[in-house]
Design a binder for these strands. Structure first.
Lengths: 155, 155
DNA sequence: CAAAAGTAGTTTACATGGAAACTATTTATT
DNA sequence: AATAAATAGTTTCCATGTAAACTACTTTTG
């Protein structure tokens, strides 16, 4: 039949149907909200989530191979290359090609990089504190637990 | 001190520290995984998540204003314009400018659009079923509930 | 060991999504 | 009514991220 255009209503009450319990949809929106909160707070300090996360992991695992970091953080190799270049240019990261496998690149933080991570650590991790008061602390914890299981980041 | 580059280990056992309970990080990874699952299953049918979601909502709310759809789905206006154009070109969507406010655009599905949504509905929503067996059905439900609260998509 | 296959990372060329400035229209102010 | 402010959507231009082809090196295989 194809209800001809303009049956109307724009009463702001938008019907979502089963979409509102679609995991894919909810994850996308939740991620956008979390990033917004993150950005509004931290972009002023020139802190980008992806960059900081990468530096953080390298800081905890000095000498790790570039590709391993990429796989762990679900960053594609092509993107990783650019990320690493920017962080090297910024003076935060060191690349080193080991003699035993000269295809690979091992990453570590410079002194400046270590300072950067140390001094922004609290600001960065505060996101997980909560930000939005829509969840109680217990619910937030539970959400983290379920997401860890879902993503396979369990210990 | 700046441990000089290459102190170490590439033993695949990557230390994440507090990152592994950071909501922002987990949401990003979860969303990537969900989209991957989605794509691998549905891209063959030319079904993109954002496009289908938009058509779905217009189908449930014929005549809705373009901007309202965008706000509801957290799509930025600039992006919405392109999405709508593609769906109009594909023959799924109708734009109509009402006389009472000629700035706005009301959206509705064409017959072809309705067929498209109807015939792909199950495939699309099956994502929420689970896909990954890492969560039990109860856990998946619980995750959905928490995400709905987090995002503000509660009834 | 030479050829073939595999692995690590880079490059290029493109797709996706967004911020800011712009056009058109409507509503508020004087 | 005339100007100013607000709103809806579009355009342009840029940032982010990716797939596919490529280079360099290493491992396997006959």
């Amino acid at each position: 039949m194809g209800q001809s255009a303009g049956d109307i209503l724009d009463s702001e009450r938008v019907e979502l149907g089963e979409l509102s319990s679609s995991l894919g949809f909810l994850l996308r929106v939740a991620q956008l909200q979390a990033f917004d909160a993150f950005f509004n707070r931290l972009a002023p300090d020139g802190l980008k989530p992806g960059e900081f996360t990468m530096l953080w992991v390298v800081g905890l695992n000095p000498g790790l191979r570039q590709g391993t970091v990429a796989r762990t953080l679900a960053i594609k190799p092509a993107h990783m290359t650019k990320l690493v270049q920017r962080m090297v240019d910024a003076g935060y990261l060191l690349r080193k090609t080991p003699d035993n496998d000269r295809r690979s690149v091992h990453l570590s933080l410079t002194d400046k990089g270590q300072e950067f991570v140390a001094s922004n650590r609290d600001a960065f991790l505060s996101l997980h504190g909560d930000e939005r008061a829509t969840l109680t602390p217990e619910e937030a914890d539970h959400l983290v637990t379920l997401l860890r299981r879902f993503t396979g980041f369990e210990d």
